[in-house]
Write a protein that binds this DNA or RNA. Structure first.
Lengths: 148, 148
DNA sequence: CTCTTTCCTTATCATTTGATAACAAAAGGG
DNA sequence: CCCTTTTGTTATCAAATGATAAGGAAAGAG
């Protein structure tokens, strides 16, 4: 297999994924939530409860900046902090009821755009996509790779 | 097929792609080039020659901001503008020799990290990955979809 | 030859974001 | 009981980014 072409294909592929993700998530009703803050909310929504350090690691932001943005989100009543019982330094962060409603709504919108996108794909094709994602997750986009 | 689970899987998948892309592209020698500027350079590198409007569309930035950032890149001697012969309003934008060297170097680094990543994958697996990318490109991440 | 549209520019402003220093409190290890 | 590490905070600053107004010059349409 031609290494060069294969690499090029990967570059194209990731660009396409990024592009489609953008189409699925643009113009969402974010209110006063900034892009970085939305990224945090999405991360919390999927992984809650999370700690501040986890957000910091996974969103690639420094602790001070993470703390600041999270404070803003808390002030907007979109998420809540609670001190961990077993380690008083840690905080478990979750969406507030309001934050949960917001993210539920947003995910519904994204989901609906996604369905629009795959509407014409037959059941057979969906299965193929499913398998393809499995293959790539296992071989190429294994995020447990080289976790230092 | 369970719609809900399928959608969730897509969300996970795009997050993983994003994560791996980050790992492959972090800590590159960008010098004085900002993230947004790097995005532009990468786009030019892959698609050159391009016009300002194309960059604006594909990088999702306004024309004024694109113009500003491109001016900075030109001042850094990383890209060049030349007026199109057939339409004097348009500019064809390319990497300068220096910009080309920079991007070649960067792509080499990314490529090398990528090879490190797939080092242990057998030929058979690479072919499977290749096919999987084809499937997803065709069915799911078809960027020609709904071009307004 | 006008009028409109396309493509691009310059200027300006507020906001967001990233980086750093300095600090504090809990946990863990000897 | 120290000492170090982990976890998080506050404050501050500069830079990057996004948004908008205003304009100019070429192309295209009538």
């Amino acid at each position: 297999m031609d290494q060069e072409a294969f690499f090029r294909k990967l570059v194209d592929f990731t660009a396409a994924v990024h592009q489609v993700k953008h189409e699925l998530t643009k113009d969402l009703p974010l209110g006063s939530v900034t892009p970085v803050q939305y990224g945090i909310l999405e991360y919390i929504a999927v992984h809650q409860p999370v700690t501040l350090s986890e957000i910091s690691d996974c969103q690639h932001m420094s602790m001070p900046n993470t703390s600041r943005e999270l404070k803003k989100l808390t002030e907007k009543n979109l998420c809540e902090k609670s001190i961990a019982a077993e380690d008083q330094r840690k905080q478990y962060i979750r969406l507030s009821p309001e934050g949960q409603r917001m993210m539920d709504d947003i995910f519904r919108r994204i989901h609906s755009r996604f369905e629009e996108r795959i509407r014409t794909v037959p059941e057979e094709g969906l299965k193929a996509i499913d398998r393809a994602m499995d293959v790539l997750r296992a071989q190429l986009f294994d995020t447990s790779y080289a976790k230092k």
